[in-house]
Amino acid sequence: MLSYIVRRLLWGLVIIWLVTLIVFFVIRLLPGDPLLIYLAQNQDINSMPREQIDALYREYGLDKPILVQYANWVFNLLRGDLGLSITYRQNVGKLMLERLPVTLHVGMTGFIVSLVPGVLVGLIAAMRRASWIDNVVTIISYTGIAIPVFWLAYILIYVFGLRLKWLPIAGYVSPFEDFWLSTKHLIMPVICISLPGIAATARQMRSSVLEIASQDYVRTAWSKGLAEKAVVCRHILKNSLIPIITLLGMRIGFIFGGSVIVENIFAIPGMGRLLVGSIFAQDYVVIQANALIMAVIIILSNLLVDISYGWFDPRIRYD
């Protein structure tokens, strides 16, 4: 087990290295120059003397050959230094420390919220197959998967923010500052992040349960005279969760993807919003750090998922 984890982590390092490599070179292959954008933003292009501009290029190491730039970046990374943001002119590690908790707060809440109802709803739909509940669940889950996030976001804002005035439309408050207000701010973004997840999970869960329910060992369980609850909880649930776990591994990635849209619409100061701004500004340093952190999180969560398989399915061995 331990050797398995170590091996996976080593592989993870290789993947992360590949990610850094690809991101690093691809963003530099794109036309455009982050310093130019930065200077243009400040309308400094024609006020700053050439030497000063050159000095800026030197400060960011952008005057060096690209391979040297890469080596410098990796070397600094290994020392724990993510670099200096070009637009923010601040250490990216510091920026990420501001942003990551926000995205995790919203994203993880969305993740958990999508998990429990998704599983429950899918389970109920499967157990009451072809009943009206099943039909409603099917319709809603198709809707949930098909509906674009921004569309859902605006419907929610319109209904709950504008018409009913139950929830604040945009913004973010830290839960440590004002938990209740923070939660109110969180509701709509979390619904947007989690609804596709609920729908996908419910659908997956439904078909998974249906498949498991027709397994021989479930018939065995029924033949023991167990009540429906016992059959479902002991014999069906755990088995049908196995394919769901795979799905969850992927959903972590979706959360970061979805945060880009959701954070912009609801004006949430997370990684997604930072990423959008940084892409517009071609802030290499921030984009690289962003990709790096996402890669690490996704690799770790996939490892976690794979390990949790072992708990759900004793047939899986780690060696």
């Binding site: 605006y154 804002i157 923010g161 959008v276």
Partner: peptide, 18 residues
């Protein structure tokens, strides 16, 4: 001051009196 990048969001905040 609220920094709201999305036009539609800002527009609805105005309408909602926020």
């Amino acid at each position: 001051y609220y920094y709201i990048p999305e036009q539609s969001t800002a527009s609805m905040m105005m309408e909602a009196g926020e």
